[in-house]
Design a binder for these strands. Structure first.
Lengths: 244, 244
DNA sequence: CAAGTCTGATTGTCCGACAATCATACTATC
DNA sequence: GATAGTATGATTGTCGGACAATCAGACTTG
């Protein structure tokens, strides 16, 4: 028996959005370029302004266009990867990804990442990294501040690779880890000290461009997080909390 | 001098969208739940239907609501992480990330990932992996088909880890790599054969749960991609093409 | 029970409207 | 000449109403 595909029907607002998005993605519309006014877009596409507006909301949500603060004109923007990383993390959480999966993924990639940082770190990156370590060393009463400190450290390590893709790939995982960490860090009393120790070793290894040591200590560091989770009674197979 | 923050002003369509999104993120609206009709939402929020529609387009674009095919009613959905991964990759590309950065990141994480696959792969995963390898082995005249085959292979490896986070973390990188690969694979005539060989070795190592060999061959495999890029005259420091 | 018919609800799109705000040019003031 | 005030037109956010196309469900008929 012959099977037929369902007839594709795209409503106008989506076709308009797709048409504009295509022009942005192929870069014939570039960042900062102002978008024509809604009435003019409506004329050009030969649709009603309402339809154009719905399309614009779609693009706005995809972060392909935005309005300068306190301005009316929309301009083309390149979607901030940090924001997309956040959304990506959020979607992972909503799909009931478990703490174990996140943790295990970090265990797989972070050591390589630390090793790369040791190879590539320049003076400035090391300074930033050291600052993050020092800042964490000063003890934080506040769990939220401590968690932010952990995030800072990981971001500084990733930044030391000089590779934006590395840093951004890590970002969603970090967001998911941190949500659980905020619970854990107060339950496991030695957590702060153990984290600080690991950070110092990793930082020292990166400073001396000792990739292997950086890898080892990062490996240990991540493994330690699992212990922390277990000690504080978090079920590794429970879904992670959605960030923010 | 005292500084003032700009007065926050949120248009109605955004506040409506945020209100609905919040109910989805805290899971008081759950997947599959039907959304009230537009007119009813307009009544409840005490705004015009046009305003509601703009809010819906925003949610639709964030993949928090969707329409069942051939149906009118909107239902709550959990954002498909695959789609978010695509958006994430897109945003990386629009931020002028270079081929080198993507490639280097893959070089850092894929070997660990292959090793994990070798540890965790079950019978079913191996079957799927073998199928991907066999399918690629049958030569593809079409560059697009060959590229799809490469993607299939990497996805099968990631799936073999049994860890969704691993698979999804890899996804944006894969999309960015593939865009360049489609150019490369026709320029470098031995590319197909070299890829096939590497796939076979990796697959065999995973099948025998030989993590070290899997890691090594994957490492070689990724390094080979760089050679392919160089041979085919792609500048590693040029920005990657935006996927799709 | 399957196929046809009817009816109301809902969506996609359009039109027209208006207040609030923004961009800009022009004018007055010191 | 720089600054503050004023006038003008363009643009956005929101509203109300409208209508054809389609969907969901009830009802009828064979």
């Amino acid at each position: 028996m012959t099977r037929f595909e369902p007839l594709p029907f795209e409503p106008g607002y989506r076709r308009v959005a797709a048409a504009i998005a295509a022009r942005i993605l192929d870069r014939s519309l570039r960042e900062g370029d102002p978008l024509p006014a809604e009435t003019e877009l409506a004329e050009q596409f030969a649709v009603n302004r309402s339809t154009v507006r719905e399309a614009l909301r779609e693009l706005e949500s995809a972060d392909l266009v935005a309005r300068r603060r306190g301005s009316k004109r929309m301009v083309i923007t390149r979607p901030a990867s940090e924001r997309m990383a956040g959304r990506f993390g959020q979607s992972l959480a909503l799909n009931d990804v478990t703490v174990r999966e996140v943790w295990r993924t970090l265990e797989l990639i972070e050591p390589s990442l630390a090793a790369e940082a040791a190879r590539a770190a320049d003076e400035q990156a090391i300074t930033r990294l050291q600052a993050a370590v020092d800042h964490f060393g000063a003890d934080h009463a506040d769990a939220a501040a401590a968690v932010a400190g952990v995030a800072d450290f990981f971001r500084a390590v990733a930044a030391a690779t000089g590779n934006r893709v590395v840093a951004l790939t890590q970002e969603p995982l970090l967001l998911l880890l941190l949500a659980g960490l905020e619970i854990m860090i107060d339950q496991a009393p030695q957590a702060r000290r153990r984290i600080a120790t690991a950070q110092q070793h990793i930082c020292a290894a990166i400073r001396t461009h000792d990739a292997d040591t950086a890898r080892d200590w990062m490996s240990r560091h991540i493994r330690d997080f699992r212990r922390g989770f277990e000690v504080s009674g978090i079920d590794l197979d429970s879904p992670v909390a959605a960030p923010r």
